[in-house]
């Protein structure tokens, strides 16, 4: 059976719920916008249902502990091809096994899920490191990012704890949405224009340029040419992240 859903996380969970409810195994799960009708199958369209999604998570939590709720969500954010089916296989395994399968690394889907989880953590960690705020005239701190995975929803706790008194915006230029923080509250926003890969210089506060220059100077001064090792440098700071790093641009 091929299931078609709306592309949201709750949608995936509702679909998984559906497979159990109907007693019909899923052979594939496809996002509605990418679905192409085929000749030889009759798809099932699943309506996203928050209550169903909650029940799946609750059941998983009961079987595998609290940790699993976060792991599944993070895996979904990886946007990797076939992630829906991986989650589905994992849930089935958990339901069919008498014991907690969360750490059964002999099972390929469990191992894969943890590996994806690790990739997500690495990307989150990179964003903690590579976000560079620029201060605008009205005191807002703005950063642009283009992460490999859709990790923006995982960033608020870190940055709220650090900058609780600041007004800041972190914007994902690849997925065209951002998180905006003001007085301990975070909102998801989307800018109207699509021309937002760089901030206009006119928007920035007077001292912004000075501090960027100082940071570049600092970065240049700490280099030890006798020890140069560019391979290691690139491993730590891959080129695709350079465009938003002040010191590398």
């Amino acid at each position: 059976m091929i299931y078609v859903y709306d592309g949201s996380y709750e949608g995936v969970l509702s679909t998984i719920f559906s497979t159990f409810q109907r007693g019909k195994e899923a052979h594939d799960m496809v996002v509605e916008s990418q679905y192409q009708p085929g000749l030889f199958h009759e798809p099932t369209f699943v309506t996203t249902d928050a209550a169903h999604a909650r029940r799946v998570l609750k059941g998983m939590e009961k079987r595998c502990g609290q940790e699993v709720v976060r792991l599944m969500y993070e895996a979904f954010l990886s946007e990797q091809a076939g992630i829906e089916m991986l989650l589905y296989q994992f849930v089935r395994l958990a339901v069919e096994s008498p014991e907690n399968v969360l750490h059964n690394f002999r099972e390929p889907c469990v191992l894969k899920l943890h590996q994806i989880g690790r990739q997500i953590h690495r990307e989150v960690h990179r964003m903690h490191a590579f976000v560079r705020f620029q201060q605008t005239n009205d005191g807002l701190f703005v950063a642009m990012i283009a992460p490999d995975y859709n990790v923006l929803p995982l960033l608020p706790p870190h940055f709220v704890a650090r900058y609780p008194a600041f007004c800041w915006l972190i914007y994902d230029t690849r997925r065209h949405y951002g998180i905006y923080h003001q007085q301990q509250q975070v909102d998801y926003i989307t800018l109207q224009t699509h021309q937002h890969h760089q901030l206009a210089q006119a928007l920035l506060t007077a001292s912004e340029k000075d501090y960027q220059q100082l940071w570049k100077t600092y970065f240049k001064s700490v280099d030890i040419p006798e020890r140069r090792n560019l391979k290691l440098h690139l491993q730590h700071v891959p080129k695709r992240y350079w465009k938003y790093l002040i010191e590398k641009s």
Binding site: H125, H128, A129, F130, F219, V222, D223, I224, R227, R228, N229, L230, K231, L232, H233, Q235, H236, V237, L245, E247, K248
Partner: peptide
């Protein structure tokens, strides 16, 4: 957190 790396890594 390592915010960036020098050219010697």
């Amino acid at each position: 957190i390592c915010h960036t790396y020098t050219q010697d890594g």
